[in-house]
Design a binder for these strands. Sequence first.
DNA 1: TATTGTTATACTCTATAACTATA
DNA 2: TATAGTTATAGAGTATAACAATA
Lengths: 151, 151
Amino acid sequence: MTSEDSEDALLDGLVRSAFQIMGVLTRIGAEHDLSLTQLRVLGILRDRRPRMSDLAAFLGLDKSTLSGLIDRAERRGLLARGANPDDKRVVDVLITDAGRELIGKLHQEVREALAPATGRLDAQQRRQLADLLEPVLTPPLPLTPRSTAQR
Amino acid sequence: MTSEDSEDALLDGLVRSAFQIMGVLTRIGAEHDLSLTQLRVLGILRDRRPRMSDLAAFLGLDKSTLSGLIDRAERRGLLARGANPDDKRVVDVLITDAGRELIGKLHQEVREALAPATGRLDAQQRRQLADLLEPVLTPPLPLTPRSTAQR
DNA sequence: TATTGTTATACTCTATAACTATA
DNA sequence: TATAGTTATAGAGTATAACAATA
């Protein structure tokens, strides 16, 4: 059945590309002593200030795991814990200037590392690929969920 | 510049889809006490019998890391170490029947878990997406490199 | 001497369980 | 009571360095 074939071919391509992308992110992160998860957290924090529990849920991690992760990154000055004015139990996570600078640099390195691969498509094909990917993607963590205030 | 824009949009989509796919693989692996890397190894071993060093290099892992990984999977009976007739230093890695059965089941689970996402495209779009992905992908480990004998 | 793989060691990532503080 | 987060603990994943066997 051609519908199943297309499903399998796509699955294979998505999985292979995922491992390829993860390999690049892991390597570049490691060159700066950042785990894949820490790299991801910094990327998320660029335009968000989530609470610990929301961030843990989005990452699919236990809250205790996130505590340690945030500890280590905070010790390095890449991010900080902040009080939440509405609920004293809550801890917000925010990026520091140093963290922002680092993730900006790494983003550029990732772009350069993947340029040979993405460059095998022309601009129109890249746009088409991005467009086809869009419906497949899970929505990201909402931007600055604090300002949407609904808790 | 529109060429840079398409590059950035594609990068974002690829990275997001990578995390999404990895999340699914990690979750389904964990439900069967398999790490992401072990899942990947079983997938690779389905139609290959690589030596330790080639497998480590392909995975981007140190050989010592792979030793431990293979140890744990071997203890569970999912794969085995085999002698290499051409070079007594070399250890080949091969999947067992139990490992093959397990990875087959997980493959099916992954397919089902991602069906809602990939199903948001019709068959033609899925084929198109897979085709556009192809040039971006790194070549996989060669099939049964032992039979291609060139060492 | 160089290569292949294993072992010893150490640190990070991860989850579970028990705990504290706040709601 | 329930929720948010931390800490203690333990296992897996990872790399580095030292090692044994083979080439």
